[in-house]
């Protein structure tokens, strides 16, 4: 018998949980002394949930994401995924980096293929190609697969990065300000593509996303984690977004639930934790 899940209790592990962040502090040595980026982070994320981390610049959102990704080690505490403490990056967690991070000397296809080839060494070449083609199709880049990253637009680069992260079929997807550098129209269509990709896989993947865009956070998330200001930032508030899916952009923005959450977030970011 499992005890009913108290989502805010990180002291026990629960099978429904995708990611558990327990008492995490992260500090970095700098020439001026030790800089504590985040302190005392406790967060439970359920499997299949989409969670946004939101806060002002420099509050350590990306640091938390990198700790889940295994690129940064917590100074104190631990990040637990599937009963295991994270110590290094792994193929169970796909990362979409802030600056796309496509390798400029490879084509769009090759960028995804190298990731697939690295994660699935036992699959045959044609199977791996098929995977790459499947995701290229999903993000509408089939016609651009042989172009180099310098030849495509920012939106296409981001689509490639998303396709690359999805193609290794991770349980967890980590997105670091994925749409930050894109224009509003491209952003909107990518929001819908992302939820479509997520839904096409029975909404099983857990997605953690760093953003500073309030509308984006509400539209995509099941829950929004608001961070206080750094240094030594911590979780200020966790706001659930109980708006049913599928969400449709136009009607969604006009709904009272959306407005209520937006007002709350605006209040938190502009007044409670004003920069």
């Amino acid at each position: 018998m499992e005890t009913p899940l108290d989502i805010n209790d990180t002291s026990v592990y629960h099978s429904e949980l995708g990611i558990q962040i327990r008492n995490v502090d992260i500090s970095f040595p700098t020439p001026k002394g030790i800089y504590t980026a985040v302190k005392n982070i406790n967060l439970n994320i359920k499997s299949g949930e989409i969670v946004s981390l939101i806060g002002h610049s420099g509050c350590g959102k990306s640091t938390i994401l990198n700790a889940i990704g295994g690129l940064v080690k917590p100074t104190k505490g631990e990040v637990v995924v599937k009963y295991k403490t994270i110590t290094a990056p792994g193929p169970d967690r796909g990362i979409v980096f802030q600056h796309y991070s496509l390798l400029p000397w490879m084509s769009v296809f090759e960028n995804i293929y190298q990731a697939v080839d690295s994660v699935f060494p036992d699959k045959s070449k044609s199977e791996k190609k098929e995977i790459v083609h499947y995701y290229l199709q999903k993000v509408g880049l089939m016609n651009h697969k042989d172009k180099s990253p310098q030849q495509i637009s920012g939106g296409m680069k981001q689509r490639t990065a998303i396709a690359r992260a999805f193609a290794i079929n991770p349980n967890i997807l980590l997105l670091d300000e994925p749409f930050g550098a894109l224009d509003a129209l491209t952003k909107s269509s990518l929001h819908e593509e992302l939820t479509a990709l997520w839904s096409s896989d029975e909404q099983k993947k857990t997605i953690v996303m760093v953003t500073h865009d309030i509308e984006e956070a509400i539209f995509l998330s099941d829950k929004i984690v608001v961070l206080t200001n750094g240094p030594a930032a911590t979780i200020g508030e966790i706001i659930p977004v109980n708006i049913p899916r599928p969400r449709e952009k136009k009607t969604f923005v006009a709904s009272p639930e959306y407005k209520a959450i937006r007002d709350q977030l605006l209040y938190l970011l502009m007044e409670a934790y004003a920069a």
Binding site: G70, L71, F97, L103, Q114, A115, S118, V119
Partner: peptide
């Protein structure tokens, strides 16, 4: 770092 992180995140072998 971006490129190093890509190879870490996608588990590139030293050879790759």
């Amino acid at each position: 770092d971006d490129f190093r992180n890509v190879s870490k995140a996608f588990g590139f072998s030293p050879f790759r």
